[in-house]
Design a binder for these strands. Structure first.
Lengths: 249, 249
DNA sequence: CGAGAACTTGACTACAATCAAAGGTAGTGG
DNA sequence: CCACTACCTTTGATTGTAGTCAAGTTCTCG
């Protein structure tokens, strides 16, 4: 569909040089354990927009996102679609112990996965405590994120949803240090439609609310996809979260 | 606040006789491992409506729901509230590795917990592979459930939300064998308000939609809190899920 | 039996969805 | 380079679903 992201050349990478080695599922593994994983890994790259796996498909591989952004979503028979997870580098794709995928996984940008055949990986998972340890930690983190998203989907207004999404994207693109600064510019690499799928809205409502925030001076749009926030606290106030929201010890 | 559920007398129970021993976090443990857990467990009962822990509170205990129903929820400053998890017998309360609770936990009915001090439990979790194994499995199951719930919250209509909740409760109360039967009766241990908090609706909308399903002959209400479904497939069709929804190998 | 909680119902409102059309923008090929 | 196409985005008009406000009824249990 599009050209492949060029800044990562899978074939040449050994695990020592892997950009996600400190956060991925293998993060707690020791040298000898890494060797086992390394022996069975293989890289595969997907172009932006391409499906990685469909809900209901047999799940032959599991793996980690090395570069790019993918999304986990669910689609109803009549076409209603809800994104249920955003997969960034180091996030895990697939569920050990289950042979069919419960969700659709699509590449949002070009994506490179570090893949393992599911069966052998499950074997390692039961053999290597460090692997299972990290897996559990990651699952619990994702569970917390999913639950925060449930509050957004169930209770927030359209305007609050947009503000929440913007703060999340702003936080992710700017360093944590930058978050406290009041003047921020960042790119939305999502279409209005992708945002609507994430937020449980229609794309028209997304467009209207973004422009409402702009009209009210909360944000400025440099380009359609580039947002400038003069007063980050103001944007935060629009999310409906309490002041210290999201910072849990 | 209320009287205590009488059909379970904690003090007298050893793990062999525990009603949740096959599904709880300890399910995969062997005799010797059970002994370690048994030595540190203690039961505590909470009356219906009582808080078990508040978001932000220091988390001293973790544990399993033995009897009753509890709920995990999040509240916004202005009072909007979203339930993010339903805790039934065998479900786990608390997150190992985190010292403060991210969510409110309340007893919906009278609830008995089998509690462990968090720190010693975390120690066992790293010592006993069977314990971690089951914990991971449960976390992954909850993650899937949370993601399914995101579809419900983001995209389903009020009627579909009610139908979905009813099927879930029906499934959990009747054995898996019974699910395939078409004639089912079950109790809603939840108030209309609790359902509304779960579904991201108001209690008035919950009431209206339940009565609409009744008027349309999808369900019958024996009592306000007891539902009879003559044709389970019919109820399933109302959820908006595809026919085989929820059955993933 | 009485009081409070839980539930239902009605009238009205509002927010977001839907339907529809028209600008914008980027990429393609003549 | 411009025209053409496809996609993305905005905007407007209208509808519809669920929320809000307000009684009123039915349960539960002390």
């Amino acid at each position: 569909m599009k050209n492949i992201t060029p800044n990562f050349t899978p074939a040449s990478v050994n695990c020592d040089e892997c950009p996600i080695k400190d956060r991925a599922v293998c993060a707690y593994c020791e040298k000898s354990e890494m060797a086992l994983l390394e022996a069975m890994k293989s890289y595969k790259t997907y172009a932006a927009g391409d499906p990685i796996i469909f809900a209901g498909d047999r799940m032959v591989f599991v793996g980690s996102v090395v570069t790019g952004v993918a999304r986990l979503s669910q689609t109803m028979e009549d076409g209603r679609k809800q994104m249920v997870g955003l997969l960034l580098p180091s996030d895990f794709v697939g569920r050990p112990g289950r042979s069919y995928s419960a969700f659709d996984v699509e590449a949002t940008t070009d994506v490179t996965l570090c893949r393992f055949e599911r069966k052998p990986f499950e074997k390692l998972l039961s053999d290597i405590p460090n692997l299972r340890e990290r897996m559990l930690e990651m699952a619990l983190d994702e569970l917390d994120a999913a639950r925060e998203w449930m509050l957004l989907l169930g209770r927030k207004t359209a305007r609050e949803k947009i503000a929440s999404l913007l703060t999340i994207i702003a936080r992710r693109q700017n360093s944590t240090a930058t978050v406290s600064k009041n003047d921020i510019t960042f790119d939305l690499n999502l279409t209005r439609e992708a945002m609507s799928e994430y937020l449980g809205l229609t794309l028209e409502t997304v467009s209207r609310q973004i422009n409402a925030l702009k009209k009210d001076g909360v944000i400025r749009l440099e380009k359609k996809r580039q947002v400038h926030v003069k007063d980050f606290a103001r944007l935060l106030a629009e999310t409906g979260d309490d002041a210290d929201g999201g910072f849990l010890a």
